[in-house]
């Protein structure tokens, strides 16, 4: 086993998680928890793949995926921002809705055959860096490079720009933002939309780049949930999100690849001979997600790790609510 190849594939796989995590991070920074990431990713994966098959243009596929998933996210936005319903319940419903829509519209899509994929390329010069160049900059999908740019840009946007300042204020203390003339409702709709678009992009990354094709709900295989866990692990910071996403991407690849060879480190590979061990390994990322979500739902701990203070609370503009 060549570990640089595993890591190289892991980065591509982690890009999926990265997009979904950063998208959810924006929504949560504005105070809206959206558990519908998995559903929106399925919508994105399905619509990207089918658009690409129909038109032959993968770029159009990416665009349609982002818009479709973004629009679906607005259902959640309407329910939790305007109707002020429970964000957890609405987010779960969105997951089922997204899965349902994509399964119906994607019916027959799995037999559709090949599509023109998004281009892969290497970055000249950077590939020459030992190890790093091989893992990060050699023969990666264009979307992987987009991911590299997205991380510092997101950080800069959140921490060093005026709209980023407003975003943080809306998620931390919406009434203070409202008192200074910031439209809390509009901001939240917008960032839920951003989260939806990013989830759609994550889905498109799967079906057009990382493991091309449409395999119904197995296409995403629960990565939306991992992304939600990663947001908490990242403590709502894009750089930490990137570390988490790439680490998990690499882990996913490793778990797949470790079951391949007959011999591992000079011993008979137990993961090859006992498939149940492989299943156990595949479970680990989800176990992590469950643990992180449980930790993240503890109020005291959430405060400690820097969750947006207004996360999960609808904003009600009460006349006497000061």
């Amino acid at each position: 086993m060549d570990y640089t190849i595993i890591l190289q594939a892991g980065i591509a796989s982690g890009t999926v998680l990265l997009f979904a995590t950063i998208g959810e991070l924006f929504a949560e920074r504005s105070g809206v928890l959206n558990l519908g990431v998995e559903g929106m990713m399925l919508i994105g994966a399905m619509s990207a793949f089918s658009t690409t098959i129909a038109t032959g243009n993968p770029w159009l596929g990416v665009l349609v995926a982002m818009i479709f998933a973004g629009l679906i996210s607005q259902i959640h936005a309407f329910i939790v921002i305007t109707l002020q319903a429970d964000q957890v319940v609405s987010g779960l419903a969105l997951t089922f809705l997204g899965a349902g829509i994509s399964l119906v519209l994607g019916e027959g899509l799995s037999k559709a055959g090949t599509v023109s994929l998004l281009p892969n390329f290497s970055i000249p010069l950077l590939t020459l860096i030992p190890i790093i160049g091989k893992i990060f900059f050699t023969n990666q999908s264009v979307l992987v490079y987009v991911g590299y740019l997205l991380v510092p840009l997101s950080w800069y946007y959140i921490n060093r720009t005026r709209p980023g300042l407003h975003l943080r204020a809306v998620g931390e203390y919406p009434s203070a933002a409202d008192a200074l003339g910031i439209n809390v409702f509009r901001m939240r709709y917008f960032y839920v939309f951003v989260g939806g678009m990013m989830a759609g992009l994550a889905g498109a990354t799967i079906s057009l780049a990382v493991s091309p094709g449409w395999f119904s709900e197995l296409t995403t295989g629960g990565q939306g949930w991992i992304a939600i866990g990663l947001v908490i692990f990242a403590q709502w910071d894009p750089f930490r999100a990137a570390i988490g996403a790439y680490a998990f991407g690499a882990l996913r690849r490793l778990i797949l690849d470790i079951q391949g060879p007959l011999v591992l480190f000079g011993f008979a590979n137990p993961f090859y001979y006992n498939p149940y061990l492989g299943f156990f390994l595949q479970m680990l990322p989800y176990l992590f997600t469950v643990v992180v979500l449980v930790i993240g739902s503890r109020e005291a701990l959430r405060k400690r790790i820097g969750a947006p203070a207004a996360l999960g609370n609808p904003y009600v503009r009460g006349e006497r609510g000061l």
Binding site: R162, L165, H166, A169, Y173, G181
Partner: peptide, 27 residues
């Protein structure tokens, strides 16, 4: 107000700039 309208996790300057048109984009 009696209850301060300040975002606890942000700096003094950030709180003062909140909601203003200047700076336009980059702070």
């Amino acid at each position: 107000h009696q209850h301060f309208m300040l975002v606890p996790s942000q700096t003094v300057t950030e709180n003062i700039l909140l909601g203003l048109d200047d700076p336009r984009f980059i702070m």
